[in-house]
Measured scan of single mutants.
Amino acid sequence: VLHDLRQRFPEIPEGVVSQCMLQNNNNLEACCRALSQES
């Protein structure tokens, strides 16, 4: 999931992506929604 998200959101730091995964229990859809608001 992390690799997938890193490719979709290259401009977001890995730490932020990891934190997002923890908050969303590694749910790819939820992470994508959260990160798209972030970027």
Results as ranks from 00 to 15, higher is better:
residue 1 V to E: 13
residue 1 V to L: 15
residue 2 L to S: 08
residue 2 L to H: 13
residue 2 L to K: 01
residue 2 L to R: 06
residue 2 L to Q: 08
residue 3 H to C: 09
residue 3 H to G: 11
residue 3 H to I: 11
residue 3 H to T: 12
residue 4 D to M: 12
residue 4 D to T: 13
residue 4 D to R: 10
residue 5 L to M: 05
residue 5 L to K: 05
residue 5 L to H: 06
residue 6 R to A: 08
residue 6 R to V: 09
residue 8 R to V: 00
residue 8 R to T: 01
residue 8 R to L: 09
residue 8 R to W: 00
residue 9 F to W: 00
residue 9 F to G: 01
residue 9 F to C: 03
residue 10 P to V: 00
residue 10 P to M: 02
residue 11 E to G: 10
residue 12 I to E: 04
residue 12 I to M: 10
residue 12 I to K: 04
residue 13 P to A: 05
residue 13 P to M: 05
residue 13 P to H: 03
residue 13 P to V: 02
residue 13 P to Y: 00
residue 14 E to M: 06
residue 14 E to A: 10
residue 14 E to H: 14
residue 16 V to N: 05
residue 16 V to Q: 10
residue 16 V to D: 08
residue 17 V to N: 06
residue 17 V to T: 00
residue 17 V to M: 06
residue 17 V to A: 04
residue 17 V to G: 02
residue 17 V to L: 13
residue 18 S to Q: 15
residue 18 S to A: 14
residue 18 S to P: 00
residue 18 S to V: 15
residue 18 S to E: 15
residue 18 S to I: 12
residue 19 Q to Y: 07
residue 20 C to Y: 12
residue 21 M to K: 07
residue 21 M to W: 03
residue 21 M to D: 03
residue 21 M to G: 02
residue 21 M to H: 01
residue 22 L to D: 11
residue 22 L to E: 14
residue 22 L to C: 06
residue 22 L to P: 01
residue 23 Q to L: 10
residue 23 Q to V: 09
residue 24 N to Q: 04
residue 24 N to S: 01
residue 24 N to P: 00
residue 24 N to V: 01
residue 25 N to D: 12
residue 25 N to E: 08
residue 25 N to S: 07
residue 26 N to E: 05
residue 26 N to W: 02
residue 26 N to H: 07
residue 26 N to T: 04
residue 26 N to G: 10
residue 27 N to D: 13
residue 27 N to Q: 06
residue 28 L to H: 08
residue 28 L to C: 04
residue 29 E to V: 01
residue 30 A to I: 01
residue 30 A to L: 07
residue 30 A to N: 09
residue 31 C to S: 05
residue 32 C to W: 00
residue 32 C to G: 04
residue 32 C to Q: 07
residue 32 C to K: 08
residue 32 C to R: 04
residue 33 R to E: 11
residue 33 R to F: 08
residue 34 A to T: 07
residue 34 A to R: 05
residue 34 A to E: 11
residue 35 L to K: 02
residue 35 L to F: 03
residue 35 L to E: 05
residue 35 L to T: 04
residue 36 S to V: 07
residue 36 S to R: 12
residue 36 S to I: 10
residue 37 Q to M: 13
residue 38 E to V: 11
